[in-house]
Design a protein around this nucleic acid. Structure first.
Lengths: 205, 205
DNA sequence: ACCCTCGTATGACACCTGTCATGCCGGACC
DNA sequence: GGTCCGGCATGACAGGTGTCATACGAGGGT
């Protein structure tokens, strides 16, 4: 191993995908996968233990999301480059990734060749973002929801009734309805279910 | 290439995952990925063109699902072995996979080593199914929904209103409500949103 | 022939949901 | 210190939703 070998940490919850990506990166002579984790809350410890140059993070993971992990890493390891790799090219995800200090944002239906390329580019100080996605993220503005509105919407996603939402969130039923009502209007939806779908699509949930 | 090399077709819509899986399988000396497709409706043509021994199919794909593709393949290529590879270990998926003549059902969070192993096993005539998943599929019985109930539920999933559902399905509003009502009761849900969630979780949608 | 299920439909009723007006409190920002 | 916003609450109203009884025709099974 020469000093020019790039050390990569891979965080992805689906073993088969994670190991397959590791196999893919293993084909690159200048890249070495030094650690693999399956949970968001194991990222920080693994970085401390293995000191990688680049962290490749999936978003949807148990324990903590890749976005949350990225935010933690930015504090303790400002020199570490973070690549977010996700199934869903949701504008809100991209926005949060950039705010968390990520250097690259890749969607899993991009060609595989872009993965190793992105790793090299971020180490060279470049940012890697799909231009179309960047445009979408910029054009649609920020999340208009307040924290409580988002909470209520998230809880409502599984089909809970107002009474249940009120109980879960320790609120009155009327308050729950008010939050839902404002959220529905902000998202230009026609009912809670549509509001949930819209918020999820945009990556705000 | 000797006659003992196993020819595999890979169908998976996310390029990065697909090529990563190909890289993984490529590490096996006795396995060769002879074709890759990104859509369910391209599977049949690719099998005709490349005559693989095993087809590795994702379920969620544009064009047609892997389950639909498997059913088609069973008719035209009864000797071809089908391995279903999916993110979601939903009992209904497993059931439909088996009914479509698949020989293996793998979830993506199983260890990567099981992939090549499954390919070899199905060629040897074995079936590969996670025992826990099989138990779940058997214990919870079959889909209780009628075709129309399923249709209505599927359309209702994005938050459409009764009037919209009626228009989309060319039904009266009352009929839509009847279907939803019976579906809600069959699934022991308390409203349409919960019914959608339950049906989706079980792989019935 | 008879029965059952499914698809389709209507009308009535109770309940849930979404909207709006209004109010209070605390913190943030001039 | 006043104004604005967010969190929280109530009450009233309209409209959407879920349930039920009921009906009829087509098709499958005994």
């Amino acid at each position: 191993m020469t000093t020019s070998t790039i050390k990569v940490l891979l965080a992805e919850d689906q073993s088969m995908v994670r190991e397959a990506l590791a196999a893919l990166l293993g084909l690159e002579p200048d890249i070495e996968v030094v650690a693999q984790v399956a949970r968001g809350d194991e990222v920080l410890g693994a970085v401390r233990a293995h000191a990688p140059d680049v962290a490749l993070l999936d978003i949807e993971m148990p324990g903590a999301t890749g976005l949350e992990a990225a935010a933690e890493l930015a504090v303790e390891f400002p020199a570490l480059k973070v690549v977010i790799l996700t199934t869903f090219g949701r504008p809100g995800y991209l926005r949060r990734a950039m705010e968390s200090g990520a250097s690259a944002f890749l969607v899993k239906d991009a060609p595989a060749s872009q993965l190793a390329e992105a790793v090299r580019k971020v180490l060279a100080g470049e940012k890697v973002i799909d231009p179309a996605l960047a445009a979408a993220a910029l054009s649609e503005g920020a999340d208009p929801l307040t924290d409580r509105e988002r909470d209520v919407l998230r809880e409502a996603a599984d089909g809970a009734t107002n009474a249940e939402l009120a109980a879960r969130l320790h609120l009155s039923q009327g308050t729950v309805r008010n939050y839902l009502s404002t959220a529905i209007q902000k998202l230009a939806a026609r009912n809670r279910a549509e509001a949930v779908r819209i918020a999820r699509d945009k990556g705000w949930l």
